[in-house]
């Protein structure tokens, strides 16, 4: 289960960090009104509430800057709400292209780093490393530094490792379609298996057809607010209607 209870997330604006620190200090001593500090923030998520049960597949749609990535980070617990609560009893696995990759280390070492960062143990990684390498089709490049790899290759590594995750919650930011034609087919196959399996998946995408095809639920965000939450078919259709 994962539940958002009236979650609001505000980010401090870059240009006003020092002003904020000064204003905050002044507010503490009562020289400035607390309300003045509100102008220094950008609201990424605004009073968002929804609940997913184990095994649900949620597609998240919305324009750029609507709060989708913030929502994903909160599901993973790497970002905390400014107010409200995110409750979950599942271990998350975040799937992103540039996830913690260290350019000076080899692909093999990066697989270990990715695994460690996701909470996998060395013993488990030792047991799956050959399968991950084979699936990623890295061949002789496995012991080359990552700086010589394209972004498509980075995506392959992240996806290949995620294929072996034992975590119950999978958080994806449109990654499965990375790579060349051959690997894309593999990626789609992995993606379809996840969507048919019993893991809970939260999937950010602009590919509305794949959300309709594979997700049981859909969340439409705009400017940090929920526009619609319900069955994928209905929410996507409603979203498309709004575009016309």
């Amino acid at each position: 289960m994962i539940e958002f209870k009236k979650v609001t997330k505000k980010y401090l604006l870059q240009s006003s960090k020092i002003n904020f620190a000064l204003k905050n200090t002044l507010a503490h001593i009562g020289a400035v009104k607390r309300g003045d500090i509100e102008n220094s923030y950008f609201t990424a998520l605004d009073n968002v509430s929804f609940r997913l049960e184990n095994g649900d597949k949620l597609g998240v749609i919305g324009d750029n800057g609507s709060g989708k990535t913030t929502l994903l980070r909160m599901c993973a617990g790497v970002s905390l709400p400014t107010s409200g609560e995110v409750l979950t009893d599942m271990r998350p696995h975040i799937l992103e292209t540039s996830f913690g990759l260290q350019e000076n280390l080899t692909a093999r070492e990066n697989i270990y780093i990715l695994g460690y960062l996701q909470g996998m143990t060395q013993k488990y990684l030792d047991s799956i490393i050959d399968d991950v390498i084979n699936f990623a089709d890295l061949g002789v490049y496995i012991d080359q530094p990552m700086k010589y790899f394209s972004s498509g290759m980075h995506g392959r590594i992240a996806l290949s490792l995620a294929r072996f995750t034992a975590h119950e919650l999978l958080l994806m930011d449109e990654i499965y379609s990375r790579g060349d034609v051959h690997f894309k087919e593999k990626g789609v196959e992995v993606f379809e298996n996840w969507m048919k399996g019993d893991k809970t998946v939260i999937y950010i995408s602009h590919d509305l057809q794949s959300i309709k095809d594979f997700c049981s639920k859909c969340l439409h965000l705009e400017k940090g607010k929920i526009v619609a939450f319900g069955s994928a078919e209905e929410v996507v259709n409603q979203y498309l209607e709004g575009r016309k």
Partner: peptide, 9 residues
């Protein structure tokens, strides 16, 4: 920063 943002540890 990137490590902080993307690890569940």
């Amino acid at each position: 920063k990137q490590t902080f943002l993307k690890t569940t540890l």
